[in-house]
């Protein structure tokens, strides 16, 4: 009898023979692709300009700075997407936060000490963002509005409020600490926005991969009913995810106002698609259930390297869109080959 048990129980399900090599290659492909890109630009730089692409502090700083805003948005989106949702409102949440932060500093400077004024501006900006997230979450989790529609609605609302609050133009600030936050460097090397983003990324990695919160996020995306039956508060969790995403978009808005010493409602407009692209390139599934923070980080770096690299080698900037678009499609194809989905 035990013999029979061992036999019946260890029968491999059909399809599990999918080559292990292909599987792990698929998991590593964002890394390989990033390395490939860096090698390509490095070789190009050596041949055409007799200089280095990678071993150039300015280049590295520029690439990292360019990836700050899409990455901050993408980190929150990663969790939302893993849980089977999507958030289209984050782009204009960035703008709303940027405008609120700038307006606060306009109000408070120079009457208050610069630090206090900056802190209040940050708090106000994050509060404004979290309201957008809470509404998103409430619409989706409690009222059953599809995430695509609910957040598309809030995309419009955040956009309108942002432009109203800014009066349709940029809102200039004059706070020395604000500009130091945006343009200063840790030890004179690492830009502060990069430091902040690195901490956020580290925290999000911990949250997603090491905590119950992360585990529930995967469970909801994998099988919502199973999560409900396991006693997970799916509705509350969903609301928290959208609030978290909105807060990270708010951080991106604060950083925008710090870098440009002015807030603008369209601050995050072009970044939304880059952020979704970073999440998808990083291996997350838009059907939910899969994705990692490290993958999203690599995805954001890939996009930043492509965009900066193409400018570096003097390609017309419009090619960036085509290149990023092609990479998105490629990454989804790789994912389908890997998981055996796609062909029916």
């Amino acid at each position: 009898m035990p013999e029979l048990n061992a036999k019946t129980a260890s029968v491999e399900p059909p399809g599990s023979e999918r080559p292990k090599l292909l599987h792990s290659l698929g998991a590593a492909w964002p890394w390989l692709f990033l390395i490939g890109l860096l090698v390509f630009f490095e070789v190009w730089a050596r041949i055409s300009y007799q200089t280095s692409f990678v071993l150039n502090l300015t280049n590295v700083q520029s690439i990292l700075l360019a990836s700050v805003q899409p990455l901050l948005i993408a980190l929150g989106l990663t969790l939302v997407i893993i849980a089977g949702g999507i958030d289209l409102s984050v782009g204009f949440t960035v703008g709303l936060a940027a405008v609120v932060s700038a307006r606060m500093m306009q109000l408070l400077d120079p009457g208050l000490p610069a630090l206090l004024s900056l802190l209040l501006a940050v708090v106000a900006a994050l509060l404004a963002s979290v309201v957008v997230g809470a509404v998103n979450g409430f619409l989706i989790a409690r009222l059953g509005v599809p995430p695509f529609i609910g957040t598309l609605g809030m995309y419009g609302v955040a956009r309108g409020v942002g432009f109203l609050a800014s009066g349709g133009s940029t809102v200039a600030t004059n706070n020395p600490l604000n500009s130091a936050l945006g343009n200063g460097r840790l030890l004179g090397v690492v830009p502060w926005p990069v430091v902040v983003t690195a901490f956020v990324a580290l925290f999000m990695h911990y949250l997603l991969s090491r905590t119950r919160f992360g585990q529930y996020t995967y469970a909801i995306g994998g099988n919502r009913n199973a999560a409900i039956r396991a006693g997970i508060g799916v509705e509350t969790h969903t609301i928290k995810l959208y609030m978290l995403t909105a807060v990270l978009a708010g951080v991106a808005g604060v950083i925008y106002t710090a870098r440009f010493t002015a807030g603008a409602a369209q601050a995050g407009e072009p970044t939304l698609l880059d952020a979704i692209a970073a999440v998808v390139i990083g291996g997350a599934s838009l059907f939910g259930g899969a994705g990692t923070v490290v993958g999203t980080l690599i995805g954001a770096l890939i996009i930043a390297v492509i965009q900066f690299g193409l400018v570096f080698i003097d390609v017309q900037p419009f090619w960036q869109f085509i290149a990023v678009g092609a990479v998105i499609i490629l990454s989804v194809l790789v994912d389908q080959v890997r998981s055996g989905r796609g062909r029916t």
Binding site: Q215, A219, G222, N223, A226
Partner: peptide, 24 residues
Amino acid sequence: IYQDLALAGNLDVGANVFLGREPV
């Protein structure tokens, strides 16, 4: 145990055994 088993297919065995009651 429901007919659909209520397992999260994307998680491993341990995660499913402890789903909603994970030790920390």
